[in-house]
């Protein structure tokens, strides 16, 4: 009897411990908010907080996919160009009078196809994920530029833009979409076989193989999800801007990697948190928002972002102890 309750208590503590890293990210976020709130009266207003979430939503969306890829032991540097390609194709379809629903389906399909390309090359080509996606980073960008001749596609009608401009209670649609996605991704990672496989493959690929985990399928799934989420990020951006440029999505990959890392993902693979990643994206968004409110130059914002990333990693390293 007492033995059983002891086990329950221990497992409860372990589960709490897993959430500890996310608590750390949350603490960091709160700290940043306290600092900016003391420096700017406007920072803590409802409007600004919703703003921060909205500004973070695209990065959070891309970063969720990135986190899955990173946990599987890979990296996806091609998310920006994937977004650009899907943006220009879907925008030109909508401008050309195709049904909005069809354009959205095509956009997501292109994004997932881009991810499939990465996944196949990683799983069957025997190439390093960094190299594969470095190559497709150029390749997908080139396709976007060739498709548009380098020109932006303007005049996306409001029939599409309104989709992401409606609100649920006080929250604009992008926030709601990304929140739902976050929950789905969390369920995927914590409650499904494929989530277990992603964690196992990233944690020890050879042991996973010997244990019968379908390695190729697992890796490909992660890249396909990443590509699909990059496409969704592109749709949100096109709706916001009303235009699609073939150069959009520049440096999205670094923003997404930063959010994942701040959220506790290990670039060695096998470790990472969806909650942490979303919080990490909000940390970066809150930093930028706060510094803009304080009229800090963009150069210094970049400096602050760099410091945040390195500080987060150092704190992570120091508090984790030896492993």
């Amino acid at each position: 009897m007492s033995g059983a309750s002891d086990i329950a208590a221990r497992s409860g503590r372990i589960r709490l411990k897993i959430g500890l890293r996310d608590m750390g990210t949350l603490l960091g976020l709160l700290l940043i908010c306290v600092v900016f709130a003391s420096l700017s009266d406007f920072f803590l207003t409802e409007r600004n907080l919703v703003n921060i979430l909205q500004q973070s939503s695209i990065n959070a969306c891309v970063a969720i996919g990135m986190t899955l890829v990173i946990i599987s032991g890979g990296i996806d540097l091609s998310v920006g160009p994937t977004a650009a390609l899907t943006a220009v194709v879907s925008a030109s379809m909508i401008v050309g009078g195709y049904p909005v629903a069809l354009a959205i389906v095509v956009a997501l399909a292109i994004g997932m196809a881009c991810g499939l390309g990465n996944g196949l090359l990683v799983a069957y080509g025997g190439l390093q994920p960094f190299i594969v996606t470095l190559g497709t980073l150029s390749l997908y960008r080139a396709l976007a530029l060739i498709y548009t001749g380098g020109n932006p596609i303007l005049g996306v009608p409001s029939s599409f833009r309104v989709l992401f401009q409606t609100q649920v209670w006080i929250f604009p649609m992008p926030i709601v979409v990304v929140a739902v996605l976050g929950i789905l991704a969390w369920v995927l990672l914590a409650k499904t076989p494929i989530g277990e496989y992603i964690l196992a493959v990233g944690g020890n690929e050879e042991a996973s193989r010997v244990s019968g985990v379908p390695i190729a399928r697992t890796k490909i799934s992660a890249y396909v999800i990443s590509g699909g989420l990059a496409a969704l990020g592109a749709l949100i951006l096109v709706a916001r801007l009303g235009a699609a440029e073939p150069t959009l999505g520049n440096l999205w990959e670094l923003e997404a990697i930063a959010a994942s890392a701040i959220g506790g993902a290990s670039l060695m693979g096998g470790k990472g948190s969806i909650v942490g990643t979303v919080l990490g994206a909000i940390v970066l968004g809150a930093m930028r928002n706060g510094l803009t409110l304080l009229n800090v130059q963009a150069f210094y914002q970049l400096l602050a972002t760099g410091i945040i990333i390195i500080a987060a990693m150092l704190i992570d390293r120091l508090t984790r102890g030896r492993e």
Partner: peptide, 16 residues
């Protein structure tokens, strides 16, 4: 090298 996924729990390793 070939048997365990070190960071994962007993449950995850056993049910793999």
């Amino acid at each position: 090298r070939d048997g365990i996924v070190p960071l994962r729990s007993i449950v995850s390793n056993m049910a793999l």
